[in-house]
């Protein structure tokens, strides 16, 4: 920003920054690069080939699993927003005493490892399968729980940035109904927080392995492991593609999401 006017300390910090990031960056880039090289060569002849990448769309088991993961992502985001957003707005408007309880419940999954949920969920999942679908989309229900802590934080930050009470009182005094208040006043004002929550949920669902694998459903990650037992080049290629996709998602989110706190400006 102050390219030509940096102080000595800023210059020192810039130097340390680039040296450190270059060092750590190389350490983190090596596995990523290795994935790429590994995915385009075929052993033992050691010839370059794009077969592994072509297989992503041609291998029916894999493309089916990717579709399942994408469907799960969409359903989880929808379910999460339907469950969480009205509840959180309602708390701010009507039942502030319940904030701590809901926050506790939302952050609880951080304390309960996914593998532990699997152990306790079998009966519940039998009912879910019986009442909704026996297919992999039944995973939507526990996935909503898994994404709760991250989505709660994102939405809470968005709600904290606007004055929900004043906005709704103003709208109510002008004759708006509660539905109107929520849909036309509050939600549009926290669009970026909703988007961050959705992106985070998508990234988490696309990366999920534990629940799917132990409930014997074939989502993307489970199939990556399965294929890896036979042809690891394909698994590596899909993994790299998935990583890149998740990165693009989060990088895009950093532009629409809540910005990092700005330091005070000075005259």
């Amino acid at each position: 920003m102050r390219a030509s006017g940096a102080t000595k300390r800023q210059q020192n910090q810039r130097l340390t920054r680039w040296v450190t990031l270059a060092g750590v960056g190389v350490l983190f880039a090596i596995p990523i690069y290795s994935m790429f090289e590994y995915s385009i060569r075929i052993t033992p002849q050691n010839k370059q080939t794009w077969d592994a990448w072509k297989a992503i769309t041609q291998n029916e088991q894999l493309s089916g699993a990717i579709r399942v993961s994408l469907e799960l992502a969409v359903l989880t985001v929808t379910g999460m927003l339907l469950l969480l957003l009205p509840t959180m707005i309602w708390i701010r408007l009507k039942v502030p005493w319940a904030k701590r309880l809901v926050e506790f419940l939302c952050l609880l999954p951080l304390t309960i490892p996914a593998i532990v949920l699997v152990v306790g969920l079998d009966n519940v999942m039998s009912w879910v399968r019986y009442l909704t679908t026996p297919g992999p989309l039944a995973l939507t229900f526990p996935y909503i729980v898994l994404v709760l802590p991250y989505c709660y934080r994102a939405l809470d930050a968005g709600l904290a940035a606007i004055d929900v009470n004043t906005l709704s009182e103003a709208a109510r005094s002008l004759g708006a109904s509660w539905t109107t208040v929520i849909l036309r006043i509050i939600v549009p004002n926290m669009r970026s927080a909703i988007l961050s929550a959705a992106f985070l949920a998508v990234a988490l669902v696309l990366g999920e392995f534990t629940l799917a694998s132990l409930f014997f459903y074939d989502n993307m990650q489970v199939v990556i492991v399965l294929i890896g037992l036979v042809n690891s080049s394909i698994s590596v290629a899909v993994s790299l593609a998935a990583l890149a996709f998740a990165f693009v998602l989060l990088f895009a989110m950093s532009f629409v999401g809540t910005r990092p706190k700005r330091r005070e400006a000075r005259s």
């Binding site: 990366g207 534990t210 990650q221 690891s232 698994s235 590596v236």
Partner: peptide, 30 residues
């Protein structure tokens, strides 16, 4: 940096395992 960190920290799992198979596994690049 924050986006890349977010991906590696929360998306990781299986993907990272294969990253290392490709790097220092039997046929790994490194």
């Amino acid at each position: 940096v924050t986006s890349a960190s977010g991906v590696l920290a929360q998306f990781g799992g299986v993907t990272l395992a294969f990253a290392f198979i490709a790097t220092v596994g039997r046929e790994g690049v490194v």
